[in-house]
Amino acid sequence: MTAATNLRQVPLLRRYLTFTWITLGLAAVILVLSAFNSPSLLVNTLVSGGMWAMMAGGLALVFGVMNIPNFAHGELFMLGSLTASLVYGPIRELTLSSKSDVLKWLGPFPGILVACAVGFVAGIILEGSVFRQLRKRSRESWVMNTFLLTAGVSVIMQNTDMLVFGNFPRGISRYWDFKPINILGVTLAVDRLMVFVIAMVVIAAFALFLQKTRTGRAMRAVSMDETGAQMAGISLNGVYRLTLGLSSALAALAGASLLWLLPATPTVGQAPLLVAWYVVILAGLGNVQGAIIGGFLVAMIQQFTAYYVSLDWVDVVPTAFIILVLLFKPSGLFGSEVKGVWEQ
């Protein structure tokens, strides 16, 4: 019933004069103005924002549909990174030596795609062997219990990786070894641009999937009302499996496509995980659409802190900003009474 009042049509003006929209509007204005000072701020915000959005989107999806605060999301990033380095290693020599530009462009994709697939399978295994076991027994204190489970998964995966593959970073200098290109007077490495393109394509596909496909609708339905979804003949276990698979695939994809920036090590997922958490808390837990916008917002705060203040404070400032936002909007910028993974 609160849902009804919350969603009841409000006048257009009031709708856009909310805290959320004022914040976003201000952010956009600041971003555009600062671009006159240093255009790289705008460009880099967009580029890093894409990466964070991809990472945070998966995290938000799992919380939105399954109510799991996944602290092992970073280890799935690590898995993607590791897979890509193992697959791409042998291919790299081949493509670098070839004369064909097409091969050079396509070379990195097998590694990235395999990583994505491995992530998907890992997610499905994780759901079946861990969360499903807990769900069968008890759903009491679900959020905290699953948090601890994911913390356990994280510890196990990190240390297994260390025992099996060792500590040394498996990295590459570049995926796409071409001359940096110039945008708005900012020189941008092709790798960076490509990751942005991948992120945008994946996010768009993901959004379409959630909104337009039968399965995507089923996911959203489960996130809003599990009983209702079951009544409509949706298999909860099936949706859960797919949710964790997709989210893990996104994390692994992010890890694989950032291999040139973050070499695969057992702890490589920790930093992206922290940023993804910044994003989902800022945006409102379990809200994929919010997480995507939030990814850009956090990227912007980080870029501005690094530029105007100092790198030392690059983690503190977003934290302070989020604390501030939570004071005014206790459930995040896009949080609302209505739960749904995509809907704001």
């Binding site: 849902a3 009804a4 969603l7 609708r217 959203r220 339905a221 809003m224 009302d225 009983t227 209702g228 979804a229 009544m231 209505v338 739960k339 749904g340 809907e343």
Partner: peptide, 11 residues
């Protein structure tokens, strides 16, 4: 059709 309806409010 349950008595609490279980609709998907944001759809």
């Amino acid at each position: 059709v349950s008595e609490s309806l279980n609709l998907f409010p944001a759809m």
